[in-house]
């Protein structure tokens, strides 16, 4: 088990007039190599939760273990934990500060006191992971790039530390469809090819449900659903709507058909899923009115 949370509670402004309970008794296991989507309404505690994964926040009560180690114990080297668990915040491009992309991505490895050769190797490797050509980009200023590219540089600067787990908070916010798809497919590739555990945090279901294997749904500081996306869409659609998350259009379409008494599978995630399911149903029903042959 990579990360384990036991009965974690977190309260902002404890014992103050604006005391807010942000996490309520969260217990959670994350295994190495998982590809997870963490989803919930704004203010439900997503960002608070992920800040517990590498000790940026300490629980008000409860325990957080990373590879079996209680990270909030005295004497734990949090630097090492933060090398293992890389957090990419919202709009990471706002954190870029170096003159060249090389220096930007080299910043982390430099702090690890690696040799020049090793640093360059890490930078090459990280830029490759986000599909930016080293020869074209290394010496350019990060501020000359498009929004999507800047975000990928920010991502590379975390990857160069070689984390075992990568947590990304709203990685696709404000990108156009192409920029969004690019980041998502890179995340998938990083997971598949390098075995890095990935957690995507978002309030937008359509964006992540399609690619993750496990979905965690948060509401008011609690994890209310945990399972494979298809199963959650099939069985708990009402709960998702109740907590203000909404369903992808195609999933909603299937649920509305079901509500009208039609026999149809509702656990669809994509347009392809929906198309296949509808065509299957049409074939099975006797109304083969206008289906073309072949």
């Amino acid at each position: 088990m990579f990360i384990c949370l036991e009965n974690v509670n977190f309260t902002y402004n404890l014992h103050m007039p604006f005391e807010t309970k942000a996490l309520k008794d969260i217990s959670l296991n994350i295994n190495e190599g998982e590809f997870i989507g963490l989803i919930g309404h704004t203010g439900c505690g997503k960002t608070t939760l992920i800040q517990h994964f590498n000790g940026l926040l300490e629980p008000t009560s409860g325990k957080v273990y990373v590879e079996g180690l209680d990270i909030n114990e005295r004497g734990v080297n949090l630097r090492l934990i933060r090398q293992k668990v890389g957090l990419v915040f919202q709009y990471p491009e706002n954190q870029l500060f170096e003159e060249t992309i090389f220096q930007e991505v080299a910043f982390g490895p430099k702090k690890l006191s690696l040799s020049e050769d090793k640093i360059e190797k890490r930078v090459r490797e990280a830029l490759k992971m986000v599909d930016l050509d080293y020869n074209l980009y290394a010496e350019r200023s990060p501020f000359s790039l498009s929004g999507g590219e800047m975000r990928r540089v920010a991502l590379a600067s975390i990857l160069s530390i070689r984390p075992k787990m990568l947590v990304l908070d709203e990685p696709t916010a404000n990108l156009d469809p192409q920029g969004r798809n690019k980041i998502l497919s890179e995340m998938k590739a990083i997971h598949d090819n390098f075995g890095i555990t990935v957690i995507l945090v978002s309030h937008n279901m359509e964006i992540i449900a399609e690619i993750v294997d496990r979905l965690l749904v948060m509401h008011r500081g609690e994890i209310i659903l945990d399972g494979p996306p298809r199963e959650i869409f099939e069985k708990y659609a009402d709960d998702l709507i109740k907590v203000g998350l909404g369903l992808p259009q195609v999933t909603r379409c299937m649920h509305e058909l079901r509500a009208k008494g039609k026999e149809i599978y509702t656990g669809v995630l994509t347009v392809e899923d929906a198309e296949k399911e509808i065509l299957d149903r049409v074939r099975k029903s006797n109304k083969q009115l206008k289906i073309k042959k072949g």
């Binding site: 259009q249 379409c253 509305e256 058909l257 026999e263 509808i278 049409v282 289906i291 073309k292």
Partner: peptide, 23 residues
Amino acid sequence: KGLDISPHTLKVEEMVDHLCLYV
């Protein structure tokens, strides 16, 4: 695929109405 569904469909509700004729 040959279903009589208008390619100008924009809303879930319209789609549901179309599909009710088939499934």
